[in-house]
Simulated assay, not measured.
Amino acid sequence: MERSRIAVAGASGLVGSALVRSLAADGHQVVRLVRRAARGRDEICWDPEGRYVDAAGLAGCDAVVNLAGAGVGDHRWTDAYKKRLRDSRVLGTAALAEAVASLAERPRVFVSGSAIGYYGDTGERAVDEEAPPGEGFLPSLCVEWEGAAAAAREAGVRTVSLRTGLVVARGGGAWGRLFPLFEAGLGGRLGDGRQYWSFISLHDEVAAIRHLIDGEGLSGPFNLTAPQPLTNREITAAMGRVLRRPTLFPVPAPVLRLALGELAGDVLSSARVLPRRLLESGFSFAFPGIEESLRAALER
């Protein structure tokens, strides 16, 4: 990819900060969207919940990447927090898509976040991008989230939805909480451990996003998950092997529901998601297995 000017929303998050480092290391000019007045040409002011973007700042960008959104696991899912989860994603995506569509010279591609929560609980059934959305809060949120990018797509901008799985990294997300527990010897399966977890290493997540930015003709939804989802029980065993710690402390489902409320349903549900379109596009995983992904996270 030639050196480009790329705007990134959510640049301070787990994936966003890693993406910015990767792009900058290769000489690309990264412009961050910030929720205050811009302090230079490398910043753009925006207010996602207020559906405001300083569209002039996007001028000259080859790509716009939207990874912004309140953390799904940061709080109990009260009605107020569910509204924040929705607004930070749906309104922010709509604002960026409309800003992209308003430009006289539009970016080549608009890449916007989504999640494998789109599919809901799939049980033991493996699903790819052809599967319909599931039922419940997260699937309905993901449907709205992806739909909010319509303005860019309708303006003729190549538009990609990133249906991301559980990112294996020490710096945040689910594994940001799991690593300290397992390192202390306090880890164990969640519920009965039979639910599938579709994971992806942080390295491969960033590499996949860059692959989709570069990939002319690639549009629509892509599952960003490793090729072989595993059960929570299998992942727990892998954590024990890699960290050389016992995994003797399972957390029963009723305890999870008491501690997490409605969020526990997401932790206990099964998502057996396959990255069919990503593989068909020629993407190659550096860390396809869970043990490789865990070791890569520990080395960074």
Rank of each mutant, 00 (worst) to 15 (best):
V8Y: 09
V8N: 07
A9Q: 09
A11S: 15
L14P: 00
G16C: 09
S17E: 11
A18E: 12
L19G: 03
V20N: 08
R21H: 13
A24N: 11
A25F: 10
G27C: 09
H28F: 08
Q29T: 15
A37Q: 15
A38P: 05
A38V: 10
R39S: 13
R39C: 07
D42P: 01
D47K: 10
E49V: 15
R51Q: 15
Y52P: 02
Y52I: 11
Y52C: 01
A56V: 11
D62C: 03
N66A: 13
G71Q: 11
V72S: 00
R76D: 05
R76A: 10
D79I: 07
R86V: 14
D87L: 02
V90L: 05
L96K: 09
E98R: 15
S102W: 07
A104W: 07
P107N: 13
R108D: 12
S112V: 14
G113E: 02
G113L: 05
S114L: 08
G117F: 01
G117K: 03
Y118V: 00
Y119L: 01
Y119W: 02
D121S: 04
R125S: 05
A126C: 02
A126H: 07
A126E: 13
V127W: 04
D128A: 09
D128H: 03
P132A: 14
G134D: 02
E135G: 11
F137I: 07
P139R: 12
S140R: 14
L141A: 10
V143Q: 12
W145M: 03
E146S: 08
E146N: 11
G147V: 07
A150I: 07
R153S: 11
R153G: 06
G156Q: 05
G156M: 03
V157A: 02
R158L: 04
T159E: 04
T159Y: 09
T164F: 01
G165I: 02
V168G: 00
G171V: 01
F179T: 05
G185Q: 04
L186A: 14
L186P: 04
L186I: 09
R189M: 00
D192Y: 12
R194I: 01
Q195A: 08
S198P: 00
I200E: 06
S201M: 04
L202K: 11
D204Q: 06
V206Q: 00
A208D: 05
I209L: 10
L218D: 09
S219R: 15
G220A: 10
P221Y: 12
F222C: 06
N223C: 03
T225F: 06
A226Y: 04
Q228I: 09
P229T: 13
N232F: 02
R233K: 15
E234T: 05
A238R: 03
A238F: 08
G240K: 04
L243T: 07
R244F: 10
T247D: 01
T247I: 10
V251M: 12
P252T: 13
P254V: 09
V255P: 04
L258N: 07
L258C: 09
D266S: 12
V267I: 14
L268C: 05
L268G: 06
S269G: 14
S270A: 03
R277M: 02
L279Y: 05
F283V: 10
G289C: 06
E291A: 02
S293P: 00
L294I: 14
A296Y: 03
R300K: 14
